[in-house]
Amino acid sequence: MIFKPNFKIYKIKNLKEDLNNKMKKTVMFIACVVSSLSLATQAALPSNAKLSLDKNNVKVWTYKDSNNSVLSYKSETMFDVPIEKAVALVLDLEHAPRWAPNIAKVELLSRDDKKGEFTIYMILHFPFPLKNRDMVARGKITKDANGNISIKNKAIIGGKAKNANYVRMTNYEGDWTFQKLGPNKVKVSNAGFADPEGAIPSSVANMFVEQMPYQMLQKMKLELAKNPKLPPLPEMLK
């Protein structure tokens, strides 16, 4: 008897594997985007927060806020650079796409260095067949008596006309907190949440949330190691 392979079964099996791989890649992509958006000293973590990841000197906590369908997170690590350098990298909006995952463009709409306030517009890459996203966010920069610096961002309605090519994101908050530990040592914390909206269910967006801030801080570390030329800090931070 000659065995004849059932190519139809093989084809269906391979198709399922391809779909599973594409779904995993899409979930990881969304995770990176959420993290990339977090451009205040942060409140203490809620009691339901869990340490989801702890490796390579990066810790990530995730938790559910009753006001949001998407998971919130907080991550932290330490860099061997002056606090001013770490802050300058985050505030260098023009060059954010070169290291912040999936950010296609950042446009500064307004800036008041005396008040430490700014408004930005961002375009975010999403994988096919999903539409790209965009968002307008208002930011506030503060510095406390100990020299610690915070940047708090929140999505706003308006500020830029909607574009039919993008899905406008309106439910987002993101913080950066920089704690000076020494002349060349800074503790960096990143926290927030972002609803990608559109046809993406929150259950998908919530998968692998612990990976997004981890990847973000790792890319930040690599960029700082390149010793990039950064613009001066606003006068209020000097």
Score class of each variant (00 low, 15 high):
Ala100Phe: 04
Val87Ala: 05
Ala88Gly: 03
Pro127Asp: 04
Thr170Glu: 05
Asp80Lys: 07
Val70Trp: 00
Phe118Tyr: 11
Tyr10Phe: 15
Ala191Leu: 06
Asn57Ser: 13
Ile12Met: 11
Arg98Asp: 11
Leu108Pro: 09
Lys115Thr: 06
Lys4Trp: 15
Glu197Ala: 15
Asp112Pro: 11
Tyr10Gly: 14
Phe29Gln: 10
Ser150Ile: 05
Val90Phe: 10
Pro234Trp: 03
Ile156Phe: 00
Gln42Ser: 06
Ile12His: 10
Lys13Gln: 12
Lys238Tyr: 09
Pro129Gln: 12
Ala86Tyr: 00
Asn56Pro: 10
Trp176Ser: 15
Thr177Leu: 11
Leu181Asp: 03
Ile2Glu: 13
Lys50Leu: 06
Arg111Met: 06
Gln215Cys: 09
Val81Glu: 10
Leu108Gly: 08
Gly116Cys: 02
Lys8Ile: 05
Phe7Cys: 12
Leu224Arg: 09
Leu224His: 05
Leu71Glu: 05
Leu93Trp: 11
Val209Gln: 14
Ile83Gln: 09
Leu89Tyr: 02
Leu222Gly: 14
Met1Leu: 13
Arg111Asn: 08
Thr142Lys: 08
Phe126Ala: 06
Gly174Lys: 01
Arg98His: 12
Ser150Glu: 05
Leu109Tyr: 14
Pro101Thr: 03
Leu124Pro: 06
Val60Ser: 00
Lys185Ser: 02
Ala44Tyr: 04
Leu37Arg: 05
Ala161Gln: 12
Thr62Met: 03
Lys221Val: 07
Asn14Tyr: 14
Ile156Gln: 00
Leu233Lys: 04
Tyr73Cys: 09
Lys13Cys: 13
Pro201Gln: 02
Pro183Phe: 14
Met28Lys: 07
Pro129Ile: 09
Ala104Asn: 12
Val186Pro: 00
Lys105Gln: 08
Gly174Thr: 01
Leu222Ser: 14
Tyr73Val: 07
Asn21Glu: 14
Val90Ile: 14
Thr142Ala: 07
Met212Gln: 14
Cys32Lys: 12
Asp175Ser: 07
Ala191Ile: 04
Pro5Cys: 01
Arg111Tyr: 06
Asn6Gly: 07
Val34Asp: 09
Gln179His: 15
Met78Gly: 06
Lys59Asn: 10
Ile83Val: 13
Val209Ala: 14
Val90Arg: 10
Val188Pro: 00
Thr77Tyr: 00
Leu19Phe: 10
Leu53Ala: 15
Ser75Ala: 04
Leu109Glu: 12
Gly198Trp: 01
Thr170His: 07
Met23Val: 09
Lys16Leu: 08
Gly159Thr: 00
Asn146Asp: 12
Asn67Lys: 14
Glu117Phe: 04
Thr170Gln: 09
Lys8Arg: 10
Leu237Trp: 03
Met78Val: 13
Ile151Phe: 02
Leu51Met: 05
Leu45Glu: 11
Met135Trp: 01
Asn56Leu: 15
Leu109Cys: 09
Leu224Tyr: 02
Ala96His: 02
Ser69Ala: 13
Asp195Pro: 13
Pro196Lys: 04
Asp18Pro: 07
Thr62Ser: 04
Ile120Leu: 11
Asn148Asp: 01
Pro231Lys: 08
His95Glu: 07
Leu89Asp: 01
Ala194Cys: 12
Asn132Tyr: 01
Ala145Asn: 15
Leu15His: 12
Ile83Trp: 06
Lys115His: 07
Thr170Asp: 02
Met1Phe: 10
Ser66Ile: 07
